[in-house]
Write a protein that binds this DNA or RNA. Structure first.
Length: 730
DNA sequence: CGAAAGGCTCTTTTT
DNA sequence: GAGCCTTTCG
């Protein structure tokens, strides 16, 4: 059987070009993923290349997982030895296995954004700057920018151009020192340290170069210079490098991704073979034309010729509502209307938006209607306080030098180790030149250079209890299975008791999040040693991307940011918040380059759709508390009138009177008497028409109604009692 | 030391 | 409208 039989000529050319550098410029919906997977399958099956010799880089872990699944089907065999994952995940593996020579302790932990903020704050203070004067975010961005150019603190100093740079360089110096002392790497370090490792140790690079005969990189338009360099290094021997991208979908320049990588690729590899994928298989002609008109207004771009054999399809629907609440109601009721007409199932709808803040109002509407939805990374699971606390304990066990985690949990639950004590501990450790944890272990024993412990006997005892707790956990971690260790941590730290007795009353919910984290730890990590399991678990929870958690096992409307939507497709797409100030975002108004990126973002959104696109906006919207009036998105002006319909719910005139909510709403909310509330109690079994069987977690009155939280199979939902239409069951 | 209360500033997008 | 920080009091 010919693996490439079902590809069109251009796709086949791209898949067959296995030697030398290849650049695939793939428009949206042109079967890019298909080409990549078939290319790998072709290498393995037809050309007899060992999976071990292939590295394929994807943008998210989800994309990697899907590619693996498809490959298993295509090659009907194991692809275990294939190196497949994100740049970050691949670099972690390289650094853990080969980094020791470059002084990288394989037990390193990875600092995420929140950890970075905490380190930057400390760094600002240590540099004697006013922490209120400099936004940690801005400094992190500057440091990240430096690392994306592979500048160490020392090298960064030489590039200083203004006072802010000077501030940054001094903070950067502290920041990097704290990371080193903590045996921690941030996201940028993972990439940069790998490139430096290869640069400084050619023999190690040579090993990887010989192994990876074939390299492939997806979403190449969103790679940064370090990632480019890494590919150049590893592919240096065989030069069989295939990169796939679309400049029109470059939307991560704020993360220092650089589209110029595509141009440079053609320069660095003059013998490159360029393949254009221009036939779109995803969208209707109308959708494709709408998208083309939006993107064509960009100045900095080469024209491309996208086309499709698909039908004309329906008009692009442009809708204006009065407020963002009505916008949300329109979206939900429109979906309901379409579903009732038999147009697609709920899982085939997506609602996209520019900012995460927009999701809340949308979510509320879905809850009120009792319509199932999935919010991609709503209040991101791994960023929740209780989840991060437990992760911090586990990180501390893996790597006791991790000062951010230490400071996070040393007094959670409260152990009487307050801020003053923590500051003293930090200062004492610094004076001895050891990590804070090491200082703790010296509480009673000998101190270095006669630097005696600064604590009184009471505090000393409290600190000793904590350090003994950690030492016990560390020693048990060497023999216990991951879930056993997890349970031990939660019990012995006192965290379980602490969280369940929270005064705020959401202790139960937080505890359930911890149990959910535990279920991740429960998964099969193969036959790794306890230490390796712990490392694998921590790596997984740090490098997850939000879309990775997108659950496709049940049918519900997807709520997602435009950035997260990249690479996905849905039959029906709503883009909410089509307003100047939101899309394009007002922070981009004074920068033409950024403005072009906003346009690309809009293009990405529209091109996700297969059948129908709705562009929705609200006339009035509250932003940061204030209610503001906004103009329609300037991008709407670029869509020719003949592609648009404004829907029949509005009379079309500029000053239309907006229909009252009731015209699209379900029957008005009949207020539920408070007495009914007590009808439901935690533990009751109930039935819901869409979610099925569930158990009541909590129920409390709000205004004339009640908010009821129910655990359904696999998902916990918060519903408004009057809309939920519950049936009590036994 | 810790809990509670009040005041402050933001909010783009994320591996 | 929320999360973070500071202040205040016990």
């Amino acid at each position: 059987m010919n693996i490439l039989a079902n590809l069109n000529p251009a796709q086949r050319e791209a898949a067959e070009a296995i030697s030398g550098p290849v650049l695939i410029l793939a428009g949206p919906g042109s079967g890019k993923t298909r080409v990549i997977t078939h290319r790998v399958a072709y290498l393995i099956k037809t050309c007899g290349v060992s999976p071990r010799s292939i590295m394929a880089v994807t943008f998210t872990n989800k994309a990697a997982r899907e590619m693996e699944e498809r490959l298993i089907n295509l090659v009907s065999g194991s692809v275990q030895d294939l190196t497949l994952g994100t740049f970050h995940a691949i670099c972690v593996r390289i650094l853990r296995t080969s980094g020791t020579v470059a002084n990288i302790d394989p037990q390193f932990v990875i600092y995420d954004r929140e950890d970075q903020i905490s380190v930057v704050k400390r760094s600002i203070q240590e540099a004697d700057f006013d922490p209120k004067q400099y936004a940690p975010g801005a400094i992190i961005a500057a440091i990240s920018s430096a690392k994306s150019r592979m500048l160490s603190p020392v090298e960064f100093v030489k590039t200083e151009r203004n006072y802010f740079d000077e501030v940054v360089s001094r903070v950067y110096e502290n920041y990097q020192r704290i990371l080193e002392e903590s045996n921690a790497l941030d996201f940028d370090d993972l990439l940069m340290k790998t490139v430096l490792l290869f640069r400084d140790y050619p023999d190690i690079l040579a090993r990887y170069q010989s192994r990876y005969v074939h390299l492939m990189v997806d979403e190449f338009q969103d790679t940064n210079l370090v990632q480019y360099e890494l590919i150049k290094q590893i592919g240096g021997k065989y030069r069989n490098i295939c990169v796939v991208g679309d400049p029109d979908q470059s939307i991560y320049s704020w993360r220092f991704a650089d589209v110029r990588n595509i141009l440079n690729f053609e320069k660095d590899y003059p013998d490159v073979r360029v393949v254009l994928l221009e036939e779109n298989y995803r969208s209707t002609k109308t959708i494709l034309e709408t998208a083309s008109c939006i993107i064509s207004a960009n100045q900095q771009r080469k024209p491309v010729n996208l086309w499709t054999q698909n039908d004309e399809g329906t008009s692009t629907v442009v809708v204006e509502t009065y407020t963002e609440q009505e916008e949300a109601q329109f979206v939900v009721s429109e979906i309901e209307r379409l579903v009732e007409q038999g147009e697609h199932t709920l899982g085939e709808y997506a609602v996209m938006y520019r900012t995460n803040a927009q999701s809340r109002v949308l979510e509320e509407a879905f809850v009120r209607y009792g319509m199932p939805y999935k919010l991609v990374a709503g209040t991101r699971f791994y960023e929740r306080r209780e989840v991060k606390d437990i992760i911090a304990y586990l990180r501390l066990i893996q790597n006791p030098h991790d000062s951010v985690s230490l400071m996070r949990v040393i007094n959670v639950p409260q152990r009487g180790i307050g801020q003053q004590t923590q500051l003293k501990l930090a200062a004492w450790a610094k004076s001895m030149g050891v990590s804070q944890f090491e200082a703790l272990t010296r509480m009673n024993g000998e101190s270095i250079d006669n630097l005696k412990s600064p604590f009184n006997s009471h505090i000393s005892r409290v600190l000793k209890v904590f350090s003994e707790l950690m030492e016990e956990l560390i020693s048990r971690s060497k023999e216990l299975k991951l879930t056993e260790l997890f349970d031990l941590v939660v019990e012995r730290s006192g965290y379980k008791e602490y969280i369940l007795n929270e005064v705020s009353g959401d202790g139960q919910e937080r505890w359930e999040n911890i149990l959910e984290l535990r279920s991740v730890a429960q998964k099969d990590y193969g036959d790794l040693s306890p230490q390796e399991c712990l490392a694998a678990f921590l790596e997984e929870v740090t490098l997850v991307s939000d879309v990775d958690g997108l659950d496709e096992s049940f049918s519900a409307v997807t709520l997602i940011t435009l950035h997260q939507a990249k690479g996905l497709e849905f039959p029906v797409v709503f883009i909410a918040g089509m307003e100047d100030g939101l899309l394009p975002h007002f922070r981009t108004f004074d920068d033409p380059m950024q403005m072009e990126e906003e346009r690309r973002l809009c293009y990405v959104g529209v091109t996700r759709a297969k059948q129908h696109v709705y562009l929705v906006r609200a006339f009035r919207r509250s932003l940061m508390g204030r209610s503001q009036v906004s103009e329609p998105s300037r991008f709407l002006n670029d869509i020719p009138k003949h592609l648009i319909s404004t829907g029949d719910w509005k009379d079309g005139s500029e000053n239309a009177v907006f229909p009252s909510i009731q015209t699209w709403n379900k029957p008005a909310a009949t207020s539920t008497p408070t007495a009914v509330v007590s009808e439901y109690q935690a533990g009751d079994h109930v039935y819901h028409a869409q979610f099925g069987q569930g158990v009541v977690v909590s129920c409390h009155p709000v205004k004339n109604d009640a908010e009821i939280v129910i655990a359904f199979n696999g998902a916990v939902k918060k519903l408004l009692l009057s809309f939920a239409n519950l049936e009590k069951t036994d």
